[in-house]
Design a protein around this nucleic acid. Sequence first.
RNA 1: CGGGACAUGGCUCAGUCUGGUAGAGCACAGCGUUCGGGACGCUGGGGUCGCAGGUUCAAAUCCUGCUGUCCCGACCA
Length: 506
Amino acid sequence: MAQKVKTAITPTREEDYPEWYQQVVRASDMAERSPVRGCMVIKPWGYALWENIQREMDDMFKATGVKNAYFPLFIPLSFLEKEAEHVEGFAKECAVVTHHRLEKGAEGGLVPGGRLTEPLVVRPTSETIIGDAFSKWVSSYRDLPLLINQWANVVRWEMRTRIFLRTSEFLWQEGHTAHATAEEALERTTMMLEVYARMAEHFLAIPVIKGSKTAAERFPGAVDTQCIESMMQDCKALQAGTSHFLGQNFAKASNIRFQSKEEEEVYAWTTSWGSSTRLIGGVIMTHADDDGLILPPRVAPAQIVLLPIAHKETDRAKVDAYVDGLAADLGKVAYSGRPLRVEVDRRDIGGARGWDWIKKGVPLRVEIGPRDIANNAVFVGRRDKPHKEKIAMPREQFVNEVGAVLDEIQNHLFERARTFREENTRQMDDYEAFRDYFTPRNREKPEIHGGFALSHWCGSDACENKIKEDLTVTIRCIPFDAPKEKGRCICCGEESSRRVVFAKAY
RNA sequence: CGGGACAUGGCUCAGUCUGGUAGAGCACAGCGUUCGGGACGCUGGGGUCGCAGGUUCAAAUCCUGCUGUCCCGACCA
């Protein structure tokens, strides 16, 4: 009988994937559930990761000319009523403020008082309130393009929540732009999707497929919704960012008009694009293993943790001095354009100390004891390797090559994820096989199965809906890079010109 | 919002069927012994058993209602 390997996380991914996910979040100390239904508390380790994501993305936005601003949390109900499709999409899942005061209740306690004449909606997204501002800011073609982003929290009253993946309140950025022409707005839509793709692939080591949503999956009110889709370790798809070409729909709803060069009064063309703390969920489900989180070095709150080992009192001062010196030297190293982030953990808690950092996903653990100091060396463990596989390295070499090692980890994570996705992606042309692919053998306790199916689709809502109803499988996107290819719809057999990505989704 | 499961110290759970005044392991604190390693011993702190009613001499345990969590589905970043 094979001995079961002891893992830091129970259950393992294989045993119970959803529960494994929760345990990884907890073990990594990134976040916890709050007493407020569907809301989370993001703890320092998780928030630091978000700050790094934020910083990298913010720099990329600004490099394309985008400026940051901030708009109100509350949106007058009437604003949301302006765009008909938008109403359809968001009307049902919003938090609504109806009172502006608390009064002492008859039975003690507090009751809302002072009814508002017009209810305020806690923003589920800010197209309407930003559109209102834009309508004032834009009057000439010379005011365009208008490129605005805000970092904010939004609230969507979700029925089913999962920490980081779908919470009632979440942190995100939403970009909103207005342009003189459709071409320019479309170009911006794709440009921002490219930023998201770079964020996902270069920084988070999450391989993504870029594409457009089908009409059914589109943002309410958008003309085109572009997205990046990634595969999690349970083979489900996660949408990691979206960029919308809104045509003139929102410009008309918010009255964003300007005088063109030709002296005509015309509506602007707008875009919006967003990505959220969901990215953290994506990092977890792409990279974490049965020992916990694994962080991509470029965004890790700490890339290196130094673990001094000094059991004898007499060694302590020497080890501390050596570790301080090493930390200082490492702090001078630039990695991925920023100073290396180094933690020193001096807690005297035995082996649990190393495991703490494994579960938090720090890319490099460096043990330093008297023996290493005698050899002027360090003892290094990589998070992307088995935890016992540690190697001694001369100190100077480590300091000089640490950036290269971190890049190696970063690339390894990306390649590992891409290989996983490729191994779980199939071209499928037969509905029987397609159904089989997406149907778990054990209905009671569905095992990890399926993946991405690249199949032909005729373009009809009917086929899309039928597949969704039969198998809970949706079209994740129509990939930009799908080659033109004649085929027959997986569902109805009608002619089709290219394959789309089918998958179960978060 | 529909279906299912669950709710007992910080965490994982036993105890509920058969009512008798709350337990274990891990975590936490102190001391000691260990230790290139998820250590061991002793001592100790911590729970009105999700909430509200009801039955009873007596409720974690039985009954009713509510709330919350997790899973599956619909909705969605």
